[in-house]
Design a protein around this nucleic acid. Structure first.
Lengths: 236, 236
DNA sequence: GTCTATGATTTGTATAGTTGTATAGGATAA
DNA sequence: TTATCCTATACAACTATACAAATCATAGAC
């Protein structure tokens, strides 16, 4: 793993503050003591960062007065922009999809609980990969109750779209009744599928979709590539 | 004939010291050198024991400072609509906030855009740490337009709560009009604050809150410890 | 109004202590 | 053999504390 010294991370943070205009040339930075408190470190560690920035000519300090912004960084590494914004409500409507597996098996406890089944009831499972511009952005698994949707796997081979498949199963519309989100580290297999390195941050989402009557129809788990995806939650 | 490694017995001894309350949460343990001397072993052997205890979440060490008894690890859900305070105390945990910094500075492009200001307009900034049972779960930054809320920093020193501070600024209620979420790797300073190791997955959230008239009042950025936080989105 | 004294604030410097990491090597058991 | 456990040494990174030196704001004297 990367072992960035803390002072370097602080220097980078302050440099970006200057680069993005939060502190402008001539402005006084917060005092060393304040910066130390903000970053949760000792004052000397802040001084190490400021010293580095002073060497680069970004800031200059005057004893008793403070630290002032000298110039804006000429060359600041702009973070890779996140390219794909995906709305959480538009789960099944992604541009590209690749079917990885279509299986029928017994439901585990979490799945049964979410779908209102008994543990061991059979479910149809759709494993797939979401793509955008040919790049993998999400690894998903959709679980459907087999009893209610006996032919859904067959239909999915034709449409690949969960929304359309459910429509052809007499579920014209569905809504998300529950979502849980957390950040995790990519496992080896996830990394492989999503073209990430193992341990890279991924966004893990668990959601339950239900028909207009409130009966759960799909239990979905998705792992998004953190580097390439931003979820936008739109409240109407 | 003792088959158990020395480090394991040291770890056990220290663990029972903690269990019996000889060292309480937050207390600093004796230095590695002292522990090595009292146990009559090399410092590295002590480190092996401490490393094992750290893996179990019993202790937490800070370079240069010492080894401290860790607060017990727990998981906390957070609602999207529900205010932080409410959702945490509903799960039976003691919520808390720690002010890291209160600053006034120029708005960068993103902040100005979100709050409907011009780049360079002054904003008030609240940097803080969200805690639950003393355990850090999120690192946040709230940005307010200085023109509309000239005294908000003063108020925040008293309440620490964004909701209450806005209430005292004649914003009785506000709603989230935009949320963006992604997974990232913790930087060195974030890791320090959140008691994670560098590169650990964190959940990064950018949100805009607006008053009932739709005028943006707060631009917030939060970094959640992925290990300890699950966001649950309750769509009504 | 201007000058000056004073005290608080802020940066600069010094010293010592503590944890993190790297390297090397000996002892013991599978 | 190989792996694990433990020792030994050295240095880097960070913390803690204290004090000195420069700056600034303010009050009081003139």
């Amino acid at each position: 793993m990367n072992k960035t010294p803390i002072w370097k991370s602080i220097a980078l943070s302050l440099t970006s503050d200057i680069a993005e205009g939060r502190y402008q040339t001539g402005d006084r930075l917060p005092t060393e003591a304040q910066l130390a408190a903000t970053h949760g470190v000792n004052r000397h560690t802040v001084r190490r960062a400021l010293s580095d920035m002073a060497d680069q000519g970004l800031v200059h300090s005057r004893r008793g007065a403070g630290v002032f912004v000298a110039t804006r960084p000429t060359e600041y590494p702009i973070g890779k922009r996140v390219r794909y914004h995906k709305s959480i409500s538009a789960s099944g409507k992604m541009p590209g999809k690749k079917i990885l597996a279509l299986t029928t098996r017994a439901a585990d406890e979490a799945e049964a609980d979410a779908l209102g089944l008994e543990t061991g009831d059979t479910v149809h499972v759709y494993d797939g990969l979401s793509l955008a511009d040919g790049q993998p952005i999400g690894l998903f698994q959709s679980v459907f109750p087999a009893k209610r949707f006996p032919d859904i796997l067959q239909i999915l081979t034709e449409t690949q779209s969960v929304t359309k498949a459910l429509q052809r199963c007499d579920v014209p519309d569905y809504t998300r009744i529950s979502t849980r989100l957390t950040a995790r580290a990519a496992t080896a297999t996830q990394a492989l599928h999503l073209h990430l390195s193992e341990g890279a941050p991924v966004l893990f989402s668990i959601g339950i979709n239900a028909d207009p009557e409130g009966n759960p129809v799909e239990y979905g788990r998705t792992t998004f590539a953190g580097e390439r995806v931003t979820l936008t939650l739109n409240e109407d």
